[in-house]
Nucleic acid binder design. Structure first.
Length: 569
RNA sequence: UGCUUCGUGGUGUAACUGGCAACACGUCUGACUCUGGAUCAGAAGAGUCCAGGUUCGAGCCCUGGCGAAGCAACCA
């Protein structure tokens, strides 16, 4: 094999399709559905979307886009007890924020309740469905187990007329919830539990968020999902692995419905799992309801809205998802990869600013009392087009408390007695002394002298010093609250522990609120979702709780801090 | 003692129709730096769950094991 074919191979693997896209491509080449590609994203509006849904969204919308097809948004709203309009709205917002659009194709499984009902009637008339008067416990008991076959219901062989009559009256509200269900008549001895006469309709006397009180019977998800795909002309139904065993049922239903060769093709892929968090909607809901976090959009939550509030960009999320791929292997992805994705993105676009989180006063004894200089500072060394800004510098500054040590080790490249450092964008200073509080032993202020020749860009500015510190002028500083977020759980796999409930594994230090932080005055007019790099610290995002004059920042992710590693050794 | 699916560095993915197991994250060195960031250079780390078989050649094909996950809601 020569070099050029090697190169070609490499290019091909760079743009290689995942296994699902390969299937789609094969279908197109085989002329299936006239080469049409139509997918759908089918959330249930019973909670907020999380990053696992983002993985599905990227695949559903992304693969349609890739092959010139379409992707519908369809709410699978078959259970009026759980579903709410609030969730519909948040889901739509999140999908748009991720950069996808369903145009005018916003559908609801409830749009098809009429067709589904008619189909149920049709199944009854064909002897393929029956009304069962037993309780759910009795039905469950007869269902058997994965290793033992089930028993047929005593109501299985009712007459078609009686079934029709009963089902109609179920929907007329004549019977109580739970008193009767409609079941498909398939095979109680199937090795697939889902084929053992699954319940397809149940009585629920509750207003539905879209159809109101029109219906007293509601289809089960399994009786709505596959047919909804069929009604919408979906060619590829992409879903997660756990629905693999449902596929024969969906196929059975659509086979009893279809009039020609068309049938959606379901392909399953692995769910997104992330270390140090939980991903099931039920668990996330528990955290919200028990107030262990501050709502669905708490910046520690793996929800789309939480990540957005935390400061993640849609590009970083999409990029992360692109990197983890789609397979059939159950995987747990490293949270560090998500963090890498957001650092990578923010490094290119976030303006750098000075913020002192744990301030200690620095007094430059040889700097004139009343003098203020406007230091011109580069906004982003990664992107010259972002320009510069002017930051006031004066005799009294704040620096980070941990940037000073009374008795520093050699590897500490910051300030200590008689040591020199550069104040970023300003002068080189030398520490001449410090004052401690006699009672607490805490350093109260640090004294230093500056060298006027060393101003940034000035004649002696090239002199090398060990370290560079960020600073804020004391009289010009703005006070801010900074919320230092960390991982929500201490354990890599909190949901997978038998000995502990996942809530016992919450990280007690997942949020540290810092007040009295000092930030540079250029940040006076920040707006929620504005993103910055606090120089030498990390990436921060303005929280929606901010009010003018009292900004609040969320830590998105810290900068990689190699000093921490050195210090640990 | 069932059915379905899956086993490739620590993690996640690649490897066209069998042809030197590749990439990213993480880890560790070093260089550079007015961010201990970024960037740059480099290193360690798997022989592809196991055992056979076919083949000049197997992660890939065949046989048999082992292991893991999902499946028994009037949830989705």
């Amino acid at each position: 094999m020569n070099d050029s074919t090697n190169r070609e191979k490499k290019v091909n693997s760079d743009t290689s399709l995942n296994f699902i896209e390969q299937f789609i491509q094969e279908d197109i080449r085989a002329g299936k559905n006239d080469g049409r590609v139509h997918t759908r994203f089918p959330p249930e509006p019973n909670g907020y979307l999380h990053i696992g849904h983002a993985k599905a969204i990227c695949l559903d919308f992304g693969s349609a886009e890739k092959f010139g097809g379409k992707c519908n948004l369809r709410f699978d709203d078959t259970n009026p007890i759980k579903e709410e309009t609030e969730f519909v709205e948040s889901i739509k917002e999140d999908i748009h924020w991720l950069g996808f659009d369903w145009e005018d194709r916003e559908f609801y499984a409830s749009d098809y309740f009429g067709q589904l009902y008619d189909f149920a009637i049709d199944l009854i008339s064909r002897g393929l469905a029956y009304v069962d008067d037993q309780s759910s416990e009795e039905i469950a008991a007869q269902k058997g187990t994965p290793t033992a076959s089930g028993k047929e219901s005593p109501f299985r062989n009712r007459s078609m007329e009686e079934n029709l009559d009963l089902f109609t009256r179920m929907n007329a509200g004549e019977f109580d919830e739970g008193s009767r269900v409609l079941r498909a008549k398939i095979d109680m001895s199937s090795t697939n539990m889902h084929m053992r006469d699954p319940v397809i309709y149940r009585i629920i006397k509750r207003a539905h968020h879209r159809t109101g009180n029109k219906w007293m019977v509601y289809p089960m998800y399994d009786f709505a999902h596959g047919q909804s795909d069929y009604f919408e002309g979906i060619t590829h139904s992409l879903c997660t692995l756990e629905f693999e065993v449902h596929r024969p049922l969906y196929d059975w239903l659509v086979d009893n419905l279809k009039t020609d060769d068309y049938r959606p093709r379901q392909i399953e892929f692995n769910r997104l799992n992330l270390t140090y968090t939980v991903m099931s909607k039920r668990k996330l809901q528990e955290l919200v309801e028990e107030k262990l976090v501050n709502g669905w959009d708490d910046p520690r939550m793996p929800t789309i809205s939480g990540l957005r509030r935390r400061g993640y960009t849609m590009e970083s999320i999409r990029n992360f998802i692109k990197r983890i791929g789609y397979t059939k292997v159950e995987a747990i992805n490293d949270f560090a990869l998500l963090e890498h994705a957001v650092r990578d993105d923010l490094n290119k676009r976030a303006p750098r600013v000075f913020a002192v989180l744990d301030p200690v006063k620095l007094i430059i004894s040889n700097y004139p009392d009343d003098k203020v200089e406007e230091m011109e500072i580069i906004n982003n060394p990664e992107d010259e087009s972002m320009g510069t800004r002017k930051v006031p510098f004066s005799r009294e500054l704040y620096i980070e408390r941990n940037d000073f040590m009374e008795d520093p080790p050699r590897k500490f490249f910051r300030l200590g007695p008689d040591r020199e450092v550069r104040l970023k964008g300003a002068y080189i200073i030398k520490c001449t002394g410090y004052r401690k509080d006699k009672k607490t032993g805490k350093v109260e202020e640090i004294h230093c002298e500056f060298d006027p020749e060393t101003k940034s860009g000035g004649p002696a500015s090239n002199r090398k010093v060990k370290g560079t510190l960020h600073w804020v002028s004391a009289t010009h500083a703005i006070e801010a609250e900074v919320r230092q977020y960390d991982r929500l759980f201490n354990h890599e796999d909190p949901a997978g522990q038998k000995e502990h409930d996942f809530k016992e594994l919450l990280n007690p230090d997942s949020l540290e609120v810092l007040r009295g932080c000092k930030i540079e005055p250029t940040l006076a007019d920040v707006k929620p979702l504005d993103k910055f790099q606090f120089q030498r610290l990390g990436y921060y995002c303005v929280d929606k709780d901010s009010v003018p004059g009292k900004p609040i920042f969320n830590r998105t992710v810290p900068l990689r801090d190699t000093w921490e590693k050195v210090a640990k050794k």
